[in-house]
Nucleic acid binder design. Structure first.
Length: 104
DNA sequence: CAGGTGACATGAG
DNA sequence: ACTCATGCCACCT
């Protein structure tokens, strides 16, 4: 609840950046993934209220203007693979951060 | 409105 | 365990 107000502001910032409602919602949900934990693209889709839009979640994360502050690196594939990462450093950096957080 | 794209999921072989 | 094809969804052109 402490970050309810924060995420509300963040959503506005994201919308101002030109993201759609869906894309902003996805990133807001991702903000709530604790350090040391991961979620799958599918789980994030469900959290955003679109259980079947897991593919579009990847498209949304790709637009994350605040990586790694919004920890999109904590979103991985359902089969355990790391998945991709478009922020600077690429997939390699994603793996490093997850290991540093002991999420893997 | 049609066609294309992508940080996915899942089943078949 | 691995590759390939197909399905799916939001978005863009």
């Amino acid at each position: 609840m402490g970050f309810e107000m924060k995420s509300s502001n963040m959503k506005k910032r994201l919308l101002r950046k030109g993201l759609t409602e869906f894309q902003a919602d996805v990133l807001i949900k991702v903000m709530g993934i604790p350090r040391g934990e991961t979620r799958t693209y599918k789980q994030v889709a469900a959290m955003a209220g679109r259980p079947h839009a897991y593919r579009a979640v990847g498209t949304a994360l790709r637009l994350n203007p605040f990586a790694p502050t919004i920890p999109c690196h904590r979103v991985i594939k359902s089969n355990g693979d790391i998945g991709n990462y478009s922020a600077p450093g690429g997939r390699r950096k994603k793996i490093e951060m997850l290991e540093a957080e002991k999420a893997i």
